[in-house]
């Protein structure tokens, strides 16, 4: 029982990372129906920016987190403006292939600049290095901080999407672009804002993964990116709460499979779940087929 609880706590930390990345996938898909393959590389850049801030600039975790989020926002918006916006009226497959191209571009440019070798985050000190026990369950401050920041960001995101003017514009554009234009909504800036939000969350995920797992490399985004995408599909692509639930679900499953079964199978199980979801409920856990009345 205690081992199970311990595993679930580890799973929640991992799930937080997946959920943060999944949100970016799902929001961008919701608004322009694009699976943004470059998103996982924005996450990787977040990890590198965090690394740079903490080792070269000797900044603490929180200022590094803020810088990583801001710079990733700029990267995300730039990707959209340079690579996707000119293709707004092209076929979806053209944009998808472009996204793969952007992804490879970022990975190999990072490799050229920072080197292909694995780098390790500096060991945490002070509060971040502490941990405590409840019974025989060990909880580290890092886990608590990861969870706390993730929840804070999700609450903030929900507030932006539900309550603010730009959030309403995002929902309107994702439901019906033409009708949104007729309301006077600027579709281009709404799309940019969506990329900004998603990229900021990916940046946060990147630095938190660096702190949590210590090692980073230019191709680190690939597998977590895929799994976060699975999380987004699992919850219902385009649906924000779905990505959150999906992220935590995938994180916990993965840790449980590693803990109780064989860690070799953990990725296999995740993708098996994706296949099952697609067979049983193609629209995902929270997905709905909305039929419009005539």
């Amino acid at each position: 029982m205690e081992q199970l609880l311990q595993q679930i706590i580890n799973g929640i930390s991992l799930g937080s990372i997946y959920a943060l990345i999944a949100l970016g996938y799902t929001m961008v898909y919701g608004i322009i129906k694009l699976i943004n393959f470059a998103h996982s590389d924005v996450y990787m850049l977040g990890a590198y920016i965090g690394y740079f801030c903490m080792t070269k600039l000797n900044l603490g975790f929180l200022p590094s987190l803020v810088i990583a989020m801001i710079l990733c926002t700029i990267v995300g918006v730039t990707i959209e403006k340079v690579a996707y916006k000119p293709l707004r009226n092209s076929t979806r497959i053209a944009v998808l292939i472009t996204a793969i191209g952007v992804s490879l571009f970022i990975e190999y440019v990072t490799m050229a600049i920072a080197g292909a070798n694995v780098r390790s985050y500096p060991p945490m000190t002070g509060l971040m290095a502490e941990s405590f026990n409840i019974g025989s369950i060990n909880i580290t401050m890092q886990q608590l901080i990861t969870l706390g920041i993730t929840i804070l960001l999700m609450v903030l995101l929900q507030f932006i999407v539900k309550k603010t003017r730009i959030g309403k514009a995002m929902r309107a554009v994702s439901l019906d672009q033409d009708a949104a234009m007729l309301m006077g909504i600027n579709v281009n800036s709404t799309i940019s804002f969506t990329f900004a939000l998603g990229s900021a969350l990916a940046g946060a995920a990147g630095i938190m993964v660096g702190v949590y797992y210590n090692s980073i490399n230019p191709l680190m985004g690939m597998l977590p990116g895929l799994k976060a995408f699975v999380a987004a599909v699992f919850g219902g692509i385009g649906i924000i709460p779905g990505a959150m639930i999906g992220g935590y679900f995938i994180g916990i499953i993965e840790v449980l499979v590693s803990g109780y079964g064989n860690s070799m199978y953990r990725d296999g199980v995740v993708f098996a779940i994706l296949i099952l979801v697609l067979i049983i409920k193609p629209t995902g856990l929270l997905g709905k087929n909305i039929r419009e009345k005539v």
């Binding site: 514009a169 929902r171 309107a172 439901l175 009708a179 309301m183 006077g184 909504i185 909305i290």
Partner: peptide
């Protein structure tokens, strides 16, 4: 906007 409420739809009409 089908998944938004009637009120939200009307508010979007006054977006600008």
């Amino acid at each position: 906007f089908p998944t938004m409420t009637v009120l939200e739809n009307l508010e979007l009409g006054a977006f600008l």
